[in-house]
Design a protein around this nucleic acid. Sequence first.
DNA 1: GGGGTCGGTGAGAGCGCTCTCGCCGCCGGG
DNA 2: CCCGGCGGCGAGAGCGCTCTCACCGACCCC
Lengths: 341, 341
Amino acid sequence: MTETAQRPTLEAVAARAGVSRATVSRVVNGGDGVREPLAERVRRAVEELGYVPNQAARSLVTKRHGAVAVVIAEPETRVFADPFFALQLRGISKELTAQDNQLVLLLTEGRDDHTRVARYLAGGHVDGALVFSLHLDDPLPGLIRGAGLPTVFGGRPGWSDGEAGVAYVDSDNRGGAREAVRHLVGLGRTRIAHLTGPLDQTSAADRLDGYRDVMGGADARLVVESDFTPAGGERAMRALLDRCPDVDAVFAANDLTASGALRVLRERGRRVPEDVAVVGFDDMLPVAEATDPPLTTVRQDIEEMGRIMARLLLRRLDPRTPEETPAGVVLPTTLVRRAST
Amino acid sequence: MTETAQRPTLEAVAARAGVSRATVSRVVNGGDGVREPLAERVRRAVEELGYVPNQAARSLVTKRHGAVAVVIAEPETRVFADPFFALQLRGISKELTAQDNQLVLLLTEGRDDHTRVARYLAGGHVDGALVFSLHLDDPLPGLIRGAGLPTVFGGRPGWSDGEAGVAYVDSDNRGGAREAVRHLVGLGRTRIAHLTGPLDQTSAADRLDGYRDVMGGADARLVVESDFTPAGGERAMRALLDRCPDVDAVFAANDLTASGALRVLRERGRRVPEDVAVVGFDDMLPVAEATDPPLTTVRQDIEEMGRIMARLLLRRLDPRTPEETPAGVVLPTTLVRRAST
DNA sequence: GGGGTCGGTGAGAGCGCTCTCGCCGCCGGG
DNA sequence: CCCGGCGGCGAGAGCGCTCTCACCGACCCC
């Protein structure tokens, strides 16, 4: 291990510039109240010595860390591996670094890992948290709220319904679903089915609601529950074709499900989009473009979601922010037409 | 902001247990050299007060942070969004948290962001770094080595050839490619093409080397350079079919490229695998399973790569580790047969 | 039974920073 | 010309922890 030749301290800079520690500190932190010739001397000393403030010492007295935790509670590796989180992370990272904050990533590993994460968050190592928790029965959000740490949730938390003051950012799942289904209606389709996601996730439930907003109490057999995976999409599509052979359009709850559905349709000799039109959700690029035909789908600006989450949190952390009660922020979606409709 | 009712300090625990700060510290940090009845009393006091050590204060004196940076230098959002990094992160996270280390995620945003990252790393905020940098001309690795921070690279760095002492973890790209091509040979194929990745990345270059290991100086027109994307795969496949219509097998440098190739093959009326067999690389699940037919591909255990990287770094950070010079670690790959061959 | 040894414990310094306070020199007003 | 005010700067305390060192009692050996 390379012995990092004793990092210079405030003291050293002060000595070199011929001023006191306090003055150097002032210059380093914005420099108000230090007259120009002196400030310049300090800045030069900082430069020459390559001084970098010791964050630990700083945190010790300020009680702020310039760090935010991002918690991803996703037991199934498979789901975590979709590009969704990567994009969110990128958005979050952009916003955080723009304001000189670090991103501490916390992934939960299985069921009883929640307490570890909760303890860490309660331990005062970070200033706030951005939490992704997809399932309704997840104990983590509750634990985190107990920790009393400023938090913004990614995706509408299932239990937030009545409560005010829960900050979250979500896509307009319901509105996007409505748009998708209306698009199919506009194409003259009448037997429009929906392959849902796991309904214990608010995103899946909201998309189903959007479908129902347009289709009303249409044939209930046209709704098949699935699980956001290609294999699940295949199963659901088979079940659907068996009970409703006359289906002429499918709105899948996400692109992965749609890809499974497409495969079954081809296998059963249905042409897409001539016989059956298919719409997905997410615009998960590697998938939506890799299917055959490429998928019409509802795009959500995932990176922007991340950015907004971070911005929301940083605003709450800033002591200058007036005490408000931010509700959820819901981002619009857009329909992307490709060859599957 | 909920005022976090004054976190208890070592002092408080000491007072409650009727011992000195030093003793509490000893118990909290493993408890060697404290007799049982006393230690128990301390533990109870810790429990009752809900004491959590202040990491900042600790770092200030120990000069260790219990934190490792993960640097992902990937300008193109698109590539970052593939599941590759997510899986690596999961592996890294598992290993780090198992040893009570935090993961600080650093994503570079564009070209001149390198200096920011380099400065952060040199700033002594973390104990070590895990760095992913795919491109040969990336200045980041150099800057990081200059910072003198213990580092492990993900993927063989291009410039490491001669140098010893550069720690990295990589998949056996070359061996995996050989296996893929041998598999095609074993199926009786003779006109085996290769759609490469961007050759300024070592992974792509190594896969090409593996192909050549088996095919030797075969028809050079069978090698088409591409870029790891579906669209690139389409372009390359079209070019290939135009110049070598007699091709009977394709080894694509990754699954995304393969998915593009498959689409073109179908469009041109070639049956897969009857007329042309196709093999990918990565076993990127959502893609490899979503294609039609599902893709035969070379799987790398990406999560394990992450885990090993973290383990390697932690070992270097541990002062008890004997001073050795770890070279690279290369992980085996396995061929996964699906319907495309 | 006295001196040496050794393991367990406490006292205290100090890590590098911020922030409060008090001093000092300069200004304006009486 | 003197005094009050004010802005710029330095001195010093203290954030919560670790770690060294000194101390003290118990134990062993001669």
